[in-house]
């Protein structure tokens, strides 16, 4: 039996004086796509940043691909997409240069031969092949996010850890990203992804883990969207306030309450 891709046991993490993670257990097996959900401040980012070795656990153990966190981890098999960093670094760099930095890992400090081709292929996977020589800082927010995803994909990882990869990314780009992920998952990629809403990735998620106050409060089937909101046909269109306030057309049992304007009515 092979070791799980991620095995977190009784993990406690302090950030300064605050006890952010309070005994988290998380196991992700090969081929799974696990979504990490929870409110802001519930410890999602802290958990993934600890899993990829950025933060030090105060207690507990983290095994990555069967190795205790540290120099033994085969880092070339792990890809990490941090929450978007400010792209306005001091010196401009091209998308290809940023992606190529994903080819370095462990003690490999020099770029391999053909790094340009590899970087271009990774950018192609996120639909940015024609932007390889553009300054990263001049790309739009969503495009910068995709450059960071390409940087994680360029080393062809078998475990991908993403921290809110589609936050602030428009619908078509989210769909393109979901399609790319679907293809990679078909090829056996294991994914741990922090999300605010399942969105376009919903179909891929095999399991959802919900954090609250630094503890796992749900580990199982992904939550179903509210009523008809999840269906493909549902259009998130809310009528504008009409000139005269009217009682909501689909009155939801609040007829004694204040008059509902069109905007309020749309929120159950």
């Amino acid at each position: 039996m092979t070791a799980p891709a991620i095995d977190v046991r009784d993990l406690h993490v302090h950030l300064g004086a605050s006890h952010v993670l309070r005994g988290v257990d998380l196991r992700v097996d090969h081929g799974e796509v696990v979504a990490l959900l929870g409110a802001n401040g519930s410890g999602k980012s802290t958990l993934v940043r600890t899993v990829v070795g950025v933060l030090e656990p105060t207690r507990g153990e983290v095994d990555l691909l069967g190795h205790r966190l540290g120099d033994d981890v085969p880092w070339q098999r792990v890809g990490y997409v941090p929450q978007r960093v400010s792209a306005a670094a001091g010196v401009p760099s091209t998308a290809a240069e940023v992606v190529a930095s994903g080819l370095l890992h462990g003690r490999r400090l020099a770029l391999p031969r053909g790094w340009r081709r590899l970087a271009r292929e990774a950018l192609e996977q996120v639909g940015l092949a024609d932007r390889a020589d553009h300054a990263t800082g001049q790309l739009s927010g969503g495009q910068q996010q995709r450059v960071l995803i390409a940087r994680a994909l360029v080393r062809k990882p078998e475990l991908l850890v993403l921290d809110e990869p589609v936050a602030g990314v428009d619908r078509p780009s989210q769909e393109a990203f979901a399609a790319t992920m679907a293809r990679l998952v078909d090829d056996g990629l294991t994914v741990l992804v922090v999300l605010h809403e399942l969105g376009e990735l919903a179909g891929l998620i095999s399991r959802a883990v919900v954090l609250r106050h630094g503890q796992v409060v749900h580990d199982g089937a992904p939550p179903r969207p509210h009523a008809e909101h999840g269906s493909r046909e549902h259009e998130h269109v809310h009528p504008h306030t009409s000139e005269v306030p009217v009682v909501g057309a689909h009155d939801v049992g609040l007829s004694d309450g204040p008059l509902l304007t069109g905007e309020q009515e749309a929120r159950p």
């Binding site: 940043r49 990829v52 070795g53 950025v54 120099d71 981890v73 880092w75 792990v78 990490y80 941090p82 960093v85 670094a89 760099s93 240069e97 940023v98 930095s101 994903g102 370095l104 890992h105 462990g106 003690r107 400090l109 960071l148 940087r151 850890v161």
Partner: peptide, 16 residues
């Protein structure tokens, strides 16, 4: 470059 550009990513790549 990697370390200067995005230290967090460099750590997660196991770079020294």
């Amino acid at each position: 470059f990697s370390v200067s550009h995005d230290e967090e990513f460099a750590v997660s790549s196991g770079l020294p």
